[in-house]
Design a protein around this nucleic acid. Sequence first.
DNA 1: TGACTATGACTGACCAGTCAGTCATAAGTA
DNA 2: TACTTATGACTGACTGGTCAGTCATAGTCA
Lengths: 231, 231
Amino acid sequence: MTKKPIEAANPSAVRAHAATRASADGEEAPTSNRATRAAERRAAIVEAAMEEFIARGFAATRLDDIARRAGVAKGTIYLHFKDKESMFEELVRIVIVPVVARLTALPPPTGSVRDLIEAFAGNFLREVIGTRRGDLVRLIVAEGPRFPSVADFYYREVVSRGIAAMRALIEVGIARGEIREKDLARYPQILVAPAMIAVIWQSLFARHSPLDAQDMLRVHLDLIFGERRTT
Amino acid sequence: MTKKPIEAANPSAVRAHAATRASADGEEAPTSNRATRAAERRAAIVEAAMEEFIARGFAATRLDDIARRAGVAKGTIYLHFKDKESMFEELVRIVIVPVVARLTALPPPTGSVRDLIEAFAGNFLREVIGTRRGDLVRLIVAEGPRFPSVADFYYREVVSRGIAAMRALIEVGIARGEIREKDLARYPQILVAPAMIAVIWQSLFARHSPLDAQDMLRVHLDLIFGERRTT
DNA sequence: TGACTATGACTGACCAGTCAGTCATAAGTA
DNA sequence: TACTTATGACTGACTGGTCAGTCATAGTCA
């Protein structure tokens, strides 16, 4: 059943193997510690899986491709993840959580609400819009209906928190007289909408007509807070 | 190769056949005209395909399922469409075109810019948000990167036209003094963003927390045009 | 050496696309 | 009109290829 003779007669298999290891990434030092190695491989798999899922979507992604890209055999994937589905679900968690953590680590509440929101938007711009992470958001929108657990997770960890945080900020803004439109507190989605549109625009239409997300967000904040004094 | 004897001995084949025809849809009158029949079937296939593609995405949709849902044999699909991919592409065209046609058939330009935009938003709300068509938009966002032709079509027929139309309206609004924020004309996306968010929200998060899209759009227009006199 | 980790050939399920055959209807004929 | 022949729309069993997941074997570390 196995092809031992052929393999024995074909040392290139070993060479190819070693080559894969070495060439997968230029940096990979042969870390001795076992746990470290495992963690590195897991990270490589996650990275590769994200690339593939973003590029092809869940159903069309082949585990063979993920394995090849990660410089790992297919079986290895199954040492880290139960199956394709749970790999996708874990992947989303693994990638989203640190982003949320970084974004919610807001600077101390100094200055105006507008400054606060501007700082937040700046982070979002840097961390999400036009990055691999932005593509992940699009992927969640795409696969959400087929992965209720992913949609639930995303709603719970990102959307509901984000909405709540924005609502709190808006309420402060209204109390301080920075924001006129009182009903805005009922729809924090309006505050966030252009940022989401920017994310989607960058992955779908950037090559038709590029979008200056930063400038657009500025205009949007002008709309909400009134024109800014030209600082 | 053929199973003539078996079929001859098995009249159920004929019965099954007739049954399929009759039971496919309760309404199907035995239209006599051949061309009419063909058109009906094509429509049934398109309808079924849309349901399946929306529910499962392109890659995970089985043509067998589309055929069953349309009450048609798989082979029949290939009489109408070249293959799965071009079926998907044509499908998007077939469904999008009439919607655009209806939405761009604007009422005569009476009244304020705000009234115009409100009428448009009302149509959009009725025609797209929370409907099967809205799900199709989500599907385009999802599959766009893998179907450049679909993304291109959508950009050309829907996005660029929509943006241009909105920009024109905004410019009139600015000229007439209805809209303060002059820079808005540079980013008509901001005007449209909450509507898009509503579409996506309804397909992903409606069950977590329903969204009153109509009210939200009203608030957003208040933001742009200023509070409305309580008519 | 013994336990743990990694490999990749293999299996079986699944599915897009095909095509030989059927049959309702249209066209032709008397 | 009534009867025969031609057409092509429609069917669904079948094929070839693909791919998730398995597992016997090989390699590695402590």
